[in-house]
Design a protein around this nucleic acid. Structure first.
Lengths: 229, 229
DNA sequence: AATAATCATCAAATAATTTTCAAATATACC
DNA sequence: GGTATATTTGAAAATTATTTGATGATTATT
């Protein structure tokens, strides 16, 4: 869950922001003074910062600049004054975005989400991990089409891989030979579904400890096969 | 000088954008069709992209998605429709910002500047490494287009270099011949994807110890090729 | 304009996968 | 327990994909 810090001294606005962001599933902290806000931002870990420009003690510009020196998180500035907006733009403060008051709460939420998404994209190459399927001792990397059984790589042929992937994506369901043939081979493919059997065997030889006693791909008599989790 | 690509089919708007951005010191290219725009965006180097959503042939969403898969530059989407704006937000396209028509030119310039600044800030750390790719025994210097295998320079032709660079940027992923052909040769390029094969071989002859037993660019039967790290 | 380098095309050779088939084995039902 | 039905298995045949070398076309360089 993403943590957001809001530094805003006007209670009504602060509460409005907090409510909407929490409703969208964020973990929100609220602070009403610039001094405390800066301290909190520097010493706690947040994923995003929302700063009001006009604040007691230390203003939003100053906080932005100071935080930016140390932290690399998205910072959104909020202000009612047009001059402020220009200042945010012009001055190289390192703010990521600005929102002018009055703003619609949904606009705020949209911006927050956009910045968090972008930040994730730029910082971590998280794209790699979401293509991985891990089921019991079997790990499937879709992008590289590699399969590991108990951490050891097992080289699969195309049909074997497709079959395994299909099972892994639909575990604990029984599929008939005909059904599997349609799904993996294509519904307009000519040929005989019995060929599925042979591939099941090949697959078992590669992933099962004892292929005649399968622990992953089980035979369901009269119905088909099931990848058991 | 920062290079910007605008993909916009309405000449009056396109010219307006171009004029203002050039006045602000940017180097601007203008393209009026989605297909050509995507091709240009993928094969030239730009610092920022401005995409109209409604375009002939290929729309802005599609371009955004495809460019994002390869390039890590700010993308601004432009649209008149409110539904589009919502779509840009909602769909995880990877757009960095959206601008609704009609827009003030100064607003556009401000946004462009903001995104370029932010992007520079974020990539500042990795800037050195950005131009150099080092994978196992292979070092690629993008700026000079030089390749070193085990510290020894290997001279590459254009296609060989492009192919290697693409693989190096996307390691451990299987790409089909068709996919590679689209990416390296351009998606609207006529010709046959089998030509990829020949270049793969040439590349292997240059970077592999034993080209018939490749350690870097592996053949994944029935699926394509994979640059293994 | 000549030369060199690169790129595209093709067909033969090779390699790997997929399919087929029949015998063997297992399961369900009477 | 016996029979019909379903599944497994092994090996060979058929198919499909990839590699390779040679050749002509294109492009850049001198």
């Amino acid at each position: 869950m993403k943590k957001i810090l809001i530094v805003e001294d006007e209670p009504s606005i602060a509460e409005l922001q907090k409510d909407y962001l929490e409703l969208s599933g964020f973990d929100v902290d609220l602070i009403d003074s610039g001094k405390k806000g800066l301290d909190q931002a520097l010493h706690e870990t947040y994923d995003l910062l929302i700063l009001d420009v006009m604040l007691p003690e230390i203003n939003g510009f100053e906080i932005c600049k100071r935080v930016r020196e140390e932290k690399d998180i998205p910072i959104l500035m909020v202000s009612a004054k047009k001059e402020d907006i220009d200042k945010i733009r012009g001055l190289g403060l390192g703010a990521d975005d600005y929102i002018s008051k009055p703003f619609s709460p949904s606009e705020l939420v949209a911006r927050v989400k956009a910045h968090l998404t972008r930040y994730e994209r730029l910082s971590a190459k998280s794209t790699q991990t979401n293509k991985q399927i891990q089921i019991r001792g079997i790990q499937i990397d879709q992008a590289s089409r590699r399969v590991y059984v108990n951490k050891h790589e097992v080289v699969m042929t195309m049909k074997e891989f497709d079959l395994l992937l299909f099972f892994a994506r639909n575990p604990n369901q029984v599929f008939s030979r005909d059904h599997l043939f349609e799904r993996i081979w294509g519904f307009d493919s000519m040929g005989d579904p019995v060929t599925v059997t042979v591939h099941i065997r090949k697959l078992r030889e590669k992933i099962e400890q004892d292929p005649s006693n399968p622990q992953y791909i089980e035979t369901v008599w009269g119905a088909g096969y099931r990848f058991t989790v």
